[in-house]
Simulated assay, not measured.
Amino acid sequence: MGDTRFPFLPLFVPADRPERFGKAVASGADAVIIDLEDAVAPAAKAAARDGIAQGLAGLKPGDTEIYIRVNGADTGYFADDLETVAALPLTGIVLPKAEDPAILRIARETFGTNVRVIALVETPLGIVRARELAQVADRLAFGSLDYAVAIGARHVRYALEAARQELVLASASAGLSGPIDGVTTTYRDEQAVVDDAAYAADLGFGGKLLIHPAQIGPAIRGFSPTDEEIGRADKILSALGDGGAVALDGAMVDAPVVKWAKTVKFRALRLQSLQTDGEAGAEA
């Protein structure tokens, strides 16, 4: 039941700010993740949990996909979170600091097969067990900020590349869509979001977690194929004719290259359709 959209761009909204739920839904993001974990102070978690249903009540069914990030299984909030959100009309649940496939199975038993489970991998043990987690989850996501702290590294690309590559490999080997990359903490610097999204796409990620509607448009641009790639894909598909391997510009074009070209064209068309919506949502 994995999500095959490219890119998948869900937007976080604090669970204790239900007045923002509607704005998040209207932002143009692929999904809204109502955050009961990091975005809510300990003293406010119970009230935030109890207020989610009322916040969702004003939304029209099917307006957008709704996920909830619960608190971790190692906290005193986990069981209450699961009990509360099990009765809500959700698309899925995000499990933070995912390390143990057994916890993902508990979520499966609680919510049933119609609710997607995203495993947010944020710890060294989570990376080590990523291939096991991918066998249970519908999708993996990378909590890069927490992971950098956990290994004592700066939050820079070269320090986190091995972890990112492991998540990509774990997802691919389990037949899942590309994992969802972590957040870019700045939303005023559009180019930073574009660059981070493009880097994630280069590594094989299939989406990115967002913290502000202004990041939607830049993230779409970052995941978009370049004009050079689109032109090359058009040339390959035009030269192919009725199929089979052909020579083009001194190189052989065979099945893997054709598959790449078709993927580029498919993604370009989807991202072109998303671009206007994403930018309109950011202006709203």
Rank of each mutant, 00 (worst) to 15 (best):
I52W: 01
E109T: 08
G28R: 07
I180P: 04
L237E: 06
V70R: 08
D249M: 08
L237D: 02
L56I: 04
L104D: 04
I103L: 12
P256T: 01
Q275P: 02
A57F: 05
A255S: 15
V117F: 01
L248S: 11
E228N: 09
A134R: 00
A233R: 03
A73Y: 06
S27W: 15
S273G: 07
I106V: 13
A130T: 05
V94A: 07
E65N: 13
L133C: 10
A172Y: 01
A130R: 05
G217K: 03
I34C: 05
A141Q: 08
A43M: 11
F142R: 06
A31H: 04
G243W: 05
V194C: 03
P89I: 02
I220K: 00
Q54W: 00
L95Y: 10
R188H: 12
A102R: 14
G112C: 05
L95D: 06
I52T: 03
I103A: 05
T263S: 12
G281P: 08
P218F: 12
G204W: 00
G112I: 02
G278T: 02
R5E: 01
A282M: 07
T75Y: 06
L56Y: 07
V136C: 02
R157Y: 14
P18I: 09
L237I: 04
L11P: 10
K265M: 14
K45D: 04
Q272P: 03
I230A: 12
F12V: 01
R116C: 01
A44Y: 06
E228V: 14
